[in-house]
Amino acid sequence: MNSYHSLTDIELTSLLKGGDYNAFNEIYNRFQGLLFIYACKITKDNDEAEDIVQEVFLYLWDKRLSIKLHSTISSYLYSAVRYKFFNLLDHKKIRTDYRVSFQHFLNLGENITDNYIREKEFNTLIEKEISALPDKMREVFELSRKLNLSRKEISAQLNISEKTVKNQINSALKILRKRLGLFAFLILLLNR
């Protein structure tokens, strides 16, 4: 076995391309500490720096037979650390963007759902109270509020006086205000 310590980077790279595990170990021992320091400087996080360096060396070993180096092994390794760091930043940004977007969707969805449920409950309550009105009063009220007919149109359609129409609508509104409470009553008037 040769002494791999005395080999140059170029010789080690050549042996690595031939699948020599001892050459890989020498490259690892020679550059791991320096790459870790470099990764710490750019990530500001020891754990992330260690992960990046390990991934770079795993990749180097996996691709040892097909790797194309356009410069020295040290340049390649430093570039690979930088690439992994930017890749990590992209993933963090995507995760953060996704988390923010998802939280916004949840908040918005929750508000929409709550509002929809409340609106349905109010409408159900209002419809229930309208249906409990005396028949003639309910008919006049529904023609006025749901079909938006004028007093004159209701009077002609039901063959009653406009004054009766007015009295029926006012009586219906008083009854509904009492039964529904002010808040639901205002909703009824606003949805007119």
Score class of each variant (00 low, 15 high):
Ile52Pro: 05
Ile52Met: 04
Val53Phe: 03
Val53Tyr: 08
Val53Met: 13
Val53Asp: 08
Gln54Ser: 09
Gln54Ile: 14
Gln54Glu: 11
Glu55Leu: 07
Glu55Phe: 02
Glu55Asn: 14
Glu55Asp: 15
Glu55Tyr: 00
Glu55Cys: 12
Glu55Ser: 14
Val56Ile: 08
Val56Tyr: 01
Val56Gln: 05
Val56Pro: 02
Val56Asn: 07
Phe57Leu: 09
Phe57Met: 08
Phe57Ile: 06
Phe57Thr: 00
Leu58Ser: 12
Leu58Trp: 12
Leu58Met: 12
Leu58Tyr: 12
Tyr59Gln: 13
Leu60Val: 00
Leu60Ile: 01
Trp61Asp: 10
Trp61Val: 02
Trp61Phe: 14
Trp61Ile: 02
Asp62Phe: 08
Asp62Asn: 07
Asp62Tyr: 04
Asp62Val: 06
Lys63Arg: 15
Lys63Pro: 02
Lys63His: 13
Lys63Thr: 08
Arg64Asp: 06
Arg64Ala: 09
Arg64Lys: 15
Leu65Phe: 14
Leu65Asn: 11
Leu65Trp: 07
Leu65Val: 03
Ser66Ile: 11
Ser66Arg: 11
Ser66Thr: 13
Ser66Asn: 13
Ser66Phe: 04
Ser66His: 03
Ile67His: 01
Ile67Asn: 01
Ile67Trp: 00
Lys68Trp: 00
Lys68Thr: 05
Lys68Ala: 11
Lys68Ser: 01
Lys68Asp: 10
Lys68Gln: 08
Leu69Ser: 05
Leu69His: 09
His70Gly: 02
His70Tyr: 09
His70Cys: 03
His70Ala: 04
His70Val: 03
His70Arg: 07
Ser71Trp: 00
Ser71Val: 02
Ser71Cys: 00
Ser71Leu: 01
Ser71Gly: 03
Thr72Pro: 08
Thr72Ser: 15
Thr72Ala: 10
Thr72Arg: 10
Ile73Phe: 02
Ile73Thr: 05
Ile73Val: 12
Ile73Glu: 01
Ser74Phe: 04
Ser74Thr: 04
Ser74Glu: 07
Ser74Asn: 10
Ser75His: 07
Ser75Tyr: 07
Ser75Val: 10
Ser75Trp: 01
Ser75Ile: 01
Ser75Leu: 02
Tyr76Leu: 00
Tyr76Glu: 06
Leu77His: 12
Leu77Met: 14
Leu77Cys: 09
Tyr78His: 14
Tyr78Glu: 09
Tyr78Phe: 15
Tyr78Thr: 05
Tyr78Asn: 06
Ser79Trp: 05
Ala80Gly: 04
Ala80Ile: 01
Val81Ala: 15
Val81Gln: 12
Val81Glu: 04
Val81Ser: 11
Arg82Trp: 00
Arg82Phe: 10
Arg82Ile: 06
Arg82Leu: 14
Arg82Tyr: 11
Tyr83Phe: 11
Lys84Ala: 13
Lys84Asn: 13
Phe85Pro: 04
Phe85Arg: 00
Phe85Lys: 11
Phe85Glu: 00
Phe85Trp: 09
Phe85Ala: 13
Phe85Val: 05
Phe85Thr: 02
Phe86Gly: 00
Phe86Met: 12
Phe86Asp: 00
Phe86Val: 03
Asn87Cys: 11
Asn87Asp: 15
Asn87His: 12
Leu88Arg: 12
Leu88Gly: 01
Leu89Gln: 14
Leu89Asp: 02
Leu89Met: 15
Leu89Ser: 07
Asp90Thr: 07
Asp90Lys: 15
Asp90Trp: 05
Asp90Tyr: 07
